[in-house]
Computed example of a mutant assay.
Amino acid sequence: MRRDPEGLLVAMASSIPSPSLNHKAKDWWEELNRSKSWQDGVFYALAALYAAIAIVALVQLIRIHRRVRDYGWTTQKVFHLLNFLVCAVRASVFLFRRPAQHVGPHILQSFLLDLPGLLFFSTYTLLVLFWAEIFYQALSLPTENLRPSFLIINTAIYVFQIAIWLIQWWDPMLVWDIFSRVFFAGVSFAGALGFLLYGGRLFLMLRRFPIESKGRRKKLREVGCVTAICFTCFTIRSVVVAWSAFDKKAEIDVLYHPILNFLYFLLVEILPSALVLYILRKLPAKRATSTAYKAIR
């Protein structure tokens, strides 16, 4: 059979995307990012999704409170309250995202855009605290230092972040913006490690539990699923925020990256919140004696 090297080269060349196609795709992406209709549409969609989750969290909080009214503010109630607050604030900010971009001074803008992320961290690390208490109690280890440690760590994070905002306000240099993002990426990574450490340890402990029961299997699935979801979302957030600190094209929570905004918040907050609320939808028993519903003091 006679070979046709020229025909082969022509076929190979035709299979390579032309520069004009790449240029058109790039122009389309830039045009989409600059489109005010796309920007507003994405922000309104995010506001609607956050509002829906806020309503679900509030309804669940009311149902739990009516079921265990006598137990005060339990860990479960605080978790749903914080979930409601985070999503309500996010929904409000995205509803007025364009005016929020021009709020002054800059420290107020940073407060509006970044504070919900810190609240999200506190909300979900509350689950880590809860699991750590269960794990320590199961091993007959002291738990009195866990809750103060949780409060101290969270307080230190908020104080440090506020200090960064004040420094940015006083000296608005790019290096402080990078430092702020790297700090938040580190906080998110610490949250991921917390879920991996205590969620993973509790999961393994439940697997080794000698008594087989429906409740054990259900709790095993619950801990395993929530651990996997939260570890994944905090890891993604850590990587994306760290990346955006050094690459302007990867910036999130800005007007000119609507699709990236939508994907980012969908993956790191909206889907995890919806899935966790669904997994933890079961109401506590009316006369629970478990430490799961012990009032927070």
Rank of each mutant, 00 (worst) to 15 (best):
V68W: 05
P99G: 09
T125N: 08
N33H: 06
A57P: 01
L118G: 10
A138F: 05
R98M: 07
Y50W: 07
L95V: 02
A57Q: 01
L112D: 02
S92P: 01
F111L: 15
Y44D: 13
V42M: 11
S110E: 14
F135V: 06
I55N: 04
L115T: 14
R34K: 13
L82H: 02
T75K: 08
V93C: 00
A47N: 04
W131I: 05
I55D: 04
S37P: 03
Q39N: 11
S122I: 09
Y136A: 15
F111R: 03
R69L: 04
A57N: 10
H65G: 11
A47L: 04
S122W: 12
G117S: 12
F96M: 07
L113Y: 13
R34H: 12
T125W: 03
K36R: 13
V128A: 09
L61D: 08
A51I: 00
A132I: 04
I134M: 09
Y136V: 05
Q76N: 09
T75H: 08
L119P: 00
Y50L: 01
R34T: 12
V56K: 12
L115V: 11
P142A: 08
L58F: 15
A100I: 12
V78G: 02
P142G: 08
R98L: 07
R67E: 12
D70G: 11
L81S: 01
R34W: 06
D70W: 06
H106M: 11
T74N: 06
L82E: 02
W38I: 10
I64N: 11
V86S: 05
C87G: 00
G72R: 10
C87D: 01
Y50P: 00
V103S: 06
V86N: 06
E133V: 14
Y124A: 02
C87K: 00
G117Y: 04
L127K: 07
L85C: 05
T74F: 04
R67Y: 04
P116D: 06
V93T: 03
T75V: 05
T75R: 14
N33I: 03
L81F: 02
V42N: 04
S110D: 15
L108W: 10
T143G: 05
P105R: 14
S92E: 01
P105Q: 13
G104H: 12
G41C: 06
L46N: 01
A45I: 09
F43N: 13
V89P: 00
H65S: 15
D70Y: 08
F43V: 01
V128Q: 06
S110L: 14
R67M: 08
F111W: 15
L49H: 02
Q101V: 01
N145H: 13
T75C: 05
V42W: 03
I64M: 06
V68C: 10
H65T: 14
W73T: 10
I62E: 10
G41Y: 06
L85D: 00
C87Y: 00
F120K: 03
C87L: 02
R98C: 02
F121H: 09
